[in-house]
Design a protein around this nucleic acid. Structure first.
Lengths: 344, 344
DNA sequence: TTTAGCACTCGAACATAAAGAGTGCTAACA
DNA sequence: TGTTAGCACTCTTTATGTTCGAGTGCTAAA
């Protein structure tokens, strides 16, 4: 086990390194006001901490740098809970204050503000609309050959798609179809629409119409769109600020990853509830080797529907960011639950 | 004026530099098979070309590098028209072959393929839907307090927005509204909808309904969305491949610019028709100092509706890229005109 | 007009040296 | 016994030459 003094020194080393990005040496540590040990004592403790794997040296005679295990311990045991400035709090509240712009804009806004507050990169996975239920279906003819299929959910989300009309279909036929569809499918969750659309309506359609298959197929396809929420990334270039990313190759690795939607989704895919911290190689993604990721999911009611995350260097201001992410995710949960939880 | 030999040497220098990214010296030039002059002769010509401003030296005794003026002359007078491989041609045709996915996906696809073919960064400005006309308006109630307003254009584009329903409005009222709106506004271009919606419908609404103002206002607002097309960028990180961008600061400048939608729009905003080449500082944007941009607009019928562009280093394969951009823009014009020009 | 020859310049690569920050170890100290 | 001062040692960083090669400009000869 670690002695109190070792804990103290570990903490102060990591704090210092997070601030300065420079390996920290015994002499400089001893100079600090709140450190009352001599350099030699500190050196001894450092040697022990290194032996236990919490610290590393970049070369034989350099100052110490936290290891991944060191950060992990720091995050798990040494973190002094941060507090938010009033200005930060209001900035976050303001995101969802004005709902006129629509949910998507608000979520995008959240990403921007989050990255500005932290000067790291933010990732926001927009709410999944999977379990939302069909409110209304429409077919709007464009010309004789094509039409737009529209699906409106009970959350106000709209899916739409252009499709080719079958030959010789009449406006009245379309009206009949729309009526049947709405009659049979209102209230069906989007995730089940694909199967139910055939089961529920084929019989009726056959009785009154011909050439309906293409249209059914169309809706089935359209409903399969966006199984996952939209991804917004804010402050992509903030990584350039980090001194450990002066190297083009390193930046490139991270940038490349950020361009791949799928990778990003995998990265922040929600695991457990609450704030999660993944340090360096704890992330599956190779490119994240030198980065840390802090995620939290937000919910509607008790159901998690999306995730917010901050991506920064391993040398991240964990305390501040954790507080921030925690706060925002709760705020989002509150707002969204109030807005959308009427339907349960 | 330039002699034939000077033209030849200028061309061969630029060709070589585009390939190698290394300053080109007289000795190496003279070694080439198709060059039959001695290094000394070439040196003399180089000195003249430099004096005229077509070449530059990086330092007193280095090889020559094309100046911006040199590139400009090269592009305007020395370009051998490139030809496309069959595989490139089919790749381009394939973009719009399968329209099932919808126009937006296809445009995004164009950006991806363009960046893959060139290994530069591609920018595609999606078609502007401004002059498209209202085909149908809908109001779908979500619950007692809110509803979704939907605008479908004659091109199959769908705009939608959630809004709050006025107190105590009845389903029949909404139906009436929708009827009036469709009756009066079908065929109105989106750009004029904002004004016309009040002029055309207020009188009728007043006669039959109350509390309609909020709804009108709503539609007016929704129609004002996306005045410009959507922007897609492909291969953002391709700039990292360029040896002249080994420098983090340079990359950052370009990356930062690419994140700003507005800047990008300004950058590729269509000017003249045909393929445009902007070299280095010919672009207004500061960050483009070391980059070149090749743009071409595409049209529906005779009306330009969008732009495609390639962003690369000044040392770009102009010939190939110009051919490619030209080809794709024509292909897009053809396809889109066939699809959407029925309505004029 | 072209080219060979030559002196000269500059950058890249490499070696060397000195300075500075840091360590580990030992011995003295409280 | 835990703490600290002292010291030799290590390694990086920075500065300073040195050399090498690629390139130039100029002059004079072909």
């Amino acid at each position: 086990m670690l002695t109190d003094r070792q804990l103290f020194i570990l903490q102060i080393i990591i704090d210092d390194f997070i601030r300065s990005a420079q390996p920290v040496g015994s002499r400089n540590l001893a100079k600090k006001d709140d450190v009352s040990y001599s350099p030699a004592t500190i050196r001894n403790e450092m040697a022990d901490l290194e032996e236990m794997g919490f610290l590393e040296k970049t070369h034989t005679s350099s100052g110490r740098v936290p290891s991944e295990k060191g950060y992990r311990y720091y995050v798990d045991h040494l973190l002094s809970p941060g507090s938010l400035r009033r200005s930060e709090r209001t900035a976050i509240h303001s995101i969802f204050a004005d709902r006129q712009e629509g949910l998507e804009k608000a979520v995008q806004n959240a990403a921007t503000i989050l990255s500005e507050l932290t000067s790291y990169t933010s990732i926001v996975l927009g709410p999944r609309f999977n379990d939302h239920k069909v409110r209304n279906l429409q077919i709007i003819p464009i010309d004789t050959r094509s039409a737009v299929a529209i699906i409106v959910t009970d959350t106000g989300h709209v899916e739409n798609r252009i499709f080719s009309l079958p030959e010789g279909i009449e406006p009245e036929d379309i009206e009949k179809m729309v009526n049947i569809l709405n009659d049979r499918l209102t209230g069906v969750p989007l995730s089940e629409l694909r199967q139910k659309i055939y089961k529920e309506t084929t019989e009726l359609m056959r009785r009154h119409l011909h050439n309906y298959e293409a249209v059914l197929h169309m809706f089935a396809e359209a409903s399969a769109g966006s199984p996952i929420g939209k991804l917004f990334i804010g402050g992509k270039t903030n990584i350039f600020n980090q001194p450990e990313f002066r190297d083009v190759e390193k930046v490139r690795l991270v940038m490349d990853m950020m361009e791949k939607e799928h990778d990003m989704y995998e990265l922040i895919r929600p695991t457990e509830s609450g704030v999660q911290v993944k340090i360096g190689t704890e992330n599956a993604e190779q490119a994240m080797e030198d980065c840390s990721l802090i995620t939290a999911s937000y919910s509607v009611g008790n159901e998690p529907v999306g995730t917010i995350a901050i991506l920064g260097p391993k040398r991240m201001e964990y305390s501040r960011v954790i507080t921030l992410v925690d706060f925002l995710s709760h705020d989002m949960t509150n707002v969204l639950t109030r807005l959308y939880n009427t339907r349960t």
